[in-house]
């Protein structure tokens, strides 16, 4: 029963991978011509220090995706290439592969997003639950308006304000990059501290915005749950109000909240891309920004593909955990 559910969810994940690859292949060709070919030829005619490499790439590209071949053959070639984890070379930084550049950037993004998302989800959920609890201290009500206001603002806009305030005005934090320019990446306390200092601004702009969102959603869910009959029944039984609050209200309200997390991953990531671009934080977002500036088509495609696959996988993991949180799910699927 559980196995069938997991296999089904994995099927959806594979479907997402296939859709990502297909979109990556067909969308650029919608405009009638192949922008990759155009870009490569342009680059080749310019010459310069990457010239020899570009010539090689043009030759290889023509050979693989030659116009003489029918579209479906080109498509199959592309799928085969991608299934081997080959995302081609970067056009702007030729000898480097797209996969290599992405693996270098990925840990930064996973670190930043993993920590901020988990933290703001946990903090926001607890805060939202307290906001709905009649016995919570009165001053907590004053938190609502700022939470609402922050929640409606995109991450990177808050990032602009924070970087002006904390980095430019007060000079407490570095404004740009993932570590100081002179620092050599090593596993020393000094370097770790440097990295953390650089991560504070991007992390803060993500956390402050998302905590509000999770708190508002959780509060709404709690209020709905607290109106249910089984809560009235629990009160009638004379259970402690703390027991009702944690074991009855929170336990039930957290289910839709978790579904919300799975749905919000994509949005969080889109927001983080912009935050990284603004702060020059050396993750996927900044790499994507750089790739767009340099018109590096293979790199853009590679990043888009990798990110969609990674998010699909994260969704899959959440889906697998979900029946454990809500035992009703695994039964209804059989």
């Amino acid at each position: 029963m559980h196995a069938v559910y997991i296999v089904k969810r994995f099927g959806v994940f594979l479907l997402i991978v296939w859709i990502a690859a297909t979109l990556n292949f067909f969308l650029p060709r919608l405009s009638g011509e192949d922008p990759v070919r155009t870009k490569l030829l342009e680059e080749a005619s310019l010459g310069g220090y990457v010239h020899a490499g570009i010539d090689n790439m043009v030759r290889e590209y023509q050979q693989r995706f030659g116009l003489d071949k029918p579209l479906w053959r080109q498509y199959l070639t592309y799928l085969g290439q991608i299934s081997h984890g080959d995302l081609n070379y970067s056009i702007a930084n030729y000898p480097r592969t797209v996969v290599g550049m992405i693996t270098e950037a990925l840990p930064w993004t996973i670190g930043l997003l993993g920590v901020t998302t988990l933290f703001s989800f946990a903090a926001g959920t607890i805060l939202g639950a307290l906001l709905a609890w009649p016995r919570a201290p009165y001053w907590m009500r004053w938190l609502m308006p700022p939470l609402w206001a922050l929640h409606a603002i995109p991450f990177f806009l808050l990032g602009l304000v924070l970087s002006w305030l904390l980095a430019f005005k007060l000079q407490w934090l570095p404004i740009f990059g993932g570590y100081s320019a002179g620092a050599t990446p090593a596993l020393s306390w000094g370097f770790v501290f440097d990295v953390l200092r650089h991560a504070v601004l991007p992390a803060l702009s993500i956390v402050l915005v998302s905590v509000g969102g999770w708190a508002l959603a959780m509060r709404g869910m709690m209020i709905t749950t607290m109106g249910e009959d089984y809560i009235t029944f629990a009160e009638a039984k004379g259970l402690h109000s703390a027991t009702i609050f944690t074991r009855y209200c929170i336990r039930n309200a957290i289910l839709p909240q978790t579904t919300g997390l799975a749905l919000a991953l994509g949005q969080i990531l889109s927001g983080a891309v912009l935050v990284e671009a603004i702060f020059g934080y050396p993750g996927i977002g900044a790499l994507l920004f750089q790739a767009i500036e340099e018109n590096d088509f293979f790199l853009i495609q590679g990043i888009v593909f990798t990110v969609i696959v990674a998010l699909g996988f994260a969704t899959f993991v959440l889906d697998v955990i979900y029946p454990w949180l809500d035992p009703r799910i695994s039964y209804s699927q059989s």
Partner: peptide
Amino acid sequence: DIGLTIPQLLILIIIAVSLK
């Protein structure tokens, strides 16, 4: 459902980059 798990900004980026 599946479309919503894919971050839209990324797809929009591919489209915008592809249009010359």
